[in-house]
């Protein structure tokens, strides 16, 4: 028990004094996961737009494929990415294994199905007439697509936040392809695992506290964003109103 208590006290000291190993991992976590979300959104949102707004053969197959990817064990995904990016792998020539780049790619691949799945649902919930409305008001095809995305802002924001939370909490993929190199590819989760294993409880607890603070702050941000939107309108509009449909007074 005293060990744990000492650990907590040491953790607080590390947090207050700005321990470089601790904050290195914090910075890496935020930076890698942030970039991963942006990357995944860059290729995930167009796919979600396609799935939500267009009808084509094989659409259900693709949707099912991405939905099942959410359930893939991350260790398996980590191994798969390791095999591709290791020296003898398909992309081995890039020399990315054990670099921040491959950690970001790994996280982006991991959260892509989450972004696609939530964003598709959000975009599908937008009134299908919105795209024609934008067009008849003079919008080009791309402006009309942006109009649809704006209507789905809440859901798209949710997909980003959920993905970020998933990415920053990820251990398996990051450990396998990143190698947990201190100051280079170590993140909060890998550092917690390592320092717990070697009995460095103070640092492990400090890392754990910060990871929790980050996750809770993001959720607090959502609540705050909802409040701000409420203030803006002066009315109570739920930010995660995925319905997005017109209110009709039909009995």
């Amino acid at each position: 028990m005293t060990g744990i208590l000492d650990g907590i006290i040491e953790a607080l000291e590390l947090i207050i004094t700005g321990d470089p190993v601790l904050y290195g991992a914090v910075f890496n976590s935020l930076f890698f996961s942030g970039v991963a979300v942006i990357l995944a959104a860059l290729w995930g949102l167009p796919i979600a737009m396609l799935l939500a707004l267009k009808n084509f053969r094989g659409k259900t197959v693709i949707q099912t494929f991405f939905n099942s990817l959410i359930g893939v064990p991350t260790v398996a995904l980590g191994l798969f990415l390791f095999l591709i990016f290791s020296r003898e792998g398909l992309f081995g020539f890039l020399g990315l294994i054990y670099t921040p780049a491959v950690v970001i790619i790994g996280q982006a691949v991991l959260i892509t199905p989450i972004i696609i799945s939530i964003a598709t649902t959000a975009l599908e919930a937008v009134d299908p007439e919105i795209i024609n409305l934008a067009r008849t008001l003079g919008a080009s095809e791309s402006q009309a697509s942006i109009a649809v995305m704006k209507e789905a802002t809440n859901g798209l924001l949710l997909s980003g936040v959920a993905s970020f939370n998933r990415a920053i909490a990820e251990l398996g993929v990051v450990l396998i392809v990143g190698g947990n190199i201190v100051g280079l590819t170590d993140v909060l989760t890998t550092a917690i695992a390592q320092h717990t294993a070697i009995g460095n409880l103070g640092l492990a607890i400090a890392l754990g506290i910060i990871l929790m603070v980050i996750v809770f702050s993001i959720n607090a941000f959502i609540v705050l964003a909802r409040k701000i939107k409420t203030l803006f309108y002066g009315l109570n509009i739920p930010i995660f109103n995925l319905e997005g449909k017109n209110h009709e007074n039909s009995l």
Binding site: D127, E129, I130, N132, L133, A134, T136, L137, G138, A139, S140, Q143, A147, K150, E151, G244, N246
Partner: peptide, 26 residues
Amino acid sequence: CTLVFQKTTLFDTSVYDNVAYGLKVR
């Protein structure tokens, strides 16, 4: 030309932004 739909369709924003939409894209 422009069409007003039978089912009222509005952007989920202020009245001003709705009415100004076509002017903004122009």
